[in-house]
Design a protein around this nucleic acid. Structure first.
Lengths: 147, 147
DNA sequence: GGCATAAGTTCCTTTTCGGAACCTGTCAAT
DNA sequence: ATTGACAGGTTCCGAAAAGGAACTTATGCC
């Protein structure tokens, strides 16, 4: 199977990764969540080549994760903003942060933590079931594919 | 910047993705969570080339996400199992599933849902703060990098 | 001896990536 | 009027990674 055939799979993991499973994509989206919106800024912060960045932005726009909109005329310049579909990726980003903070040690003591905007106190992200409030782990949950 | 320099970044997103941000890696791990442990089975299910699969399994073992252990002697054969560090990736996988189920429509009506192992009822995964129980969104949380 | 199995490895072609230079509109200064 | 700067790309080329198929190794079974 080729990577591009992935979007036609029944498995939601495969379909999700066909959009965000790419090498640079989630890093681009991280910058978008931080309020970075412009090509030049993203390119410089990430060190990604302009060629690849242009390609990723195109694909993310096509997937409805980002939208491209003008912020000035003469000359017309565009910036990239998260759509609702893009903002819905926040839990994925937070899960990666939480896992990396716990399991991929930083090179120096320089970790980044999540804090509440209101209180400024650290956040401890846990995935729970909205119905019961119980924590979701691989032991409590299973996948079901309707036939 | 090259992809391989990513693991030395201060940002936990970059460090996390240096392990799991690869094209096939999360799909391999999906199979591991489903109990698939052997090279041949993973290769056939994913349609990944043997070459790339061998490489990914090596890297995942080196990262401490999978461990390789013999399940028979003569000839000695190994299988791959999730370590604790690997199992800790379950929230990432679930977040991707949830996002794809909501935002990346399946080609036919063939979605996969998550259900409780105990009760069999559907799960609604939400990322919450273990301290307060409140839902985590990009509006309620911000990243803090200690200087 | 011949075949099957599991887990790779090797070889070769195709695709993607990294790096640098170039292009396009517009304004502002020389 | 020419030159330079800025922003958002595009083009070109060599390098790295992925796709595809065949081959290897160790062992047991017929």
């Amino acid at each position: 199977m080729k990577w591009n055939d992935l979007q036609n799979e029944a498995c939601p993991v495969a379909r999700g990764l066909s959009v965000i499973g790419d090498r640079w994509t989630m890093l681009v989206l991280r910058d978008c969540f931080l309020g970075i919106r412009r090509f030049e800024q993203i390119q410089e912060r990430l060190g990604i080549t302009r060629h690849v960045l242009a390609d990723r932005l195109r694909k993310l726009e096509a997937a409805g994760v980002l939208r491209r909109e003008p912020y000035q005329e003469r000359p017309v310049r565009h910036e990239y903003r998260l759509t609702e579909r893009g903002k819905a990726l926040y839990p994925v980003l937070v899960s990666v942060i939480e896992w990396a903070n716990e399991h991929v040690p930083p090179p120096v003591e320089s970790s980044v933590t999540l804090v509440s905007r209101k209180t400024g106190t650290p956040i401890a992200p846990v995935l729970t079931d909205a119905n019961t409030g119980e924590e979701i782990t691989h032991r409590t949950v299973m996948a079901l594919r309707p036939e």
